[in-house]
């Protein structure tokens, strides 16, 4: 049984995550259970495998291990500064996390002829 850690999400609340679990997946479960009430919107969940970049976050405090993360979203300098794709990290200690998502790059414009 992997040890359990607390993931504190800035401005949103806390979730529990095992050392064998992707942090983002633990946050998804917590949100499904009605926790993380401070989140302004649904968690930024994309591929959950380190490729698409939507769950980009900064680990402000704590240790983690990680699987490969696309360099298109986390450069070597970013990585050194604690930026991660939260789906690709596993906690080694309690973590303090701040989401730093990229701007949504696509949207559908609303019809303009409302009148």
């Amino acid at each position: 049984m992997s040890p359990l850690y607390t993931i504190m999400v800035e401005g949103a609340g806390a979730a529990t995550c095992s050392g064998a679990e992707r942090v983002l997946v633990a946050l998804e479960r917590a949100q499904g259970l009605g926790k993380l009430k401070g989140l302004p919107r649904k968690l930024p969940v994309g591929c959950r495998r380190g490729g698409c970049g939507v769950c980009r976050a900064r680990v402000v405090e704590g240790q983690y291990r990680h699987e490969p993360m696309s360099r298109a979203h986390v450069s070597e300098a970013d990585e050194a500064a604690g930026l991660v794709l939260s789906c690709a990290i596993y906690p080694l200690t309690n973590l303090y996390l701040r989401f730093e998502m990229p701007q949504l790059k696509n949207s559908i414009s609303e019809p303009t002829n409302i009148t």
């Binding site: 649904k42 994309g46 591929c47 698409c52 939507v54 949504l104 790059k105 949207s107």
Partner: peptide, 11 residues
């Protein structure tokens, strides 16, 4: 309805 990922999650 489109899910949130359809227009935003790509590699």
């Amino acid at each position: 309805v489109l899910n949130e990922a359809f227009l935003s999650v790509v590699t």
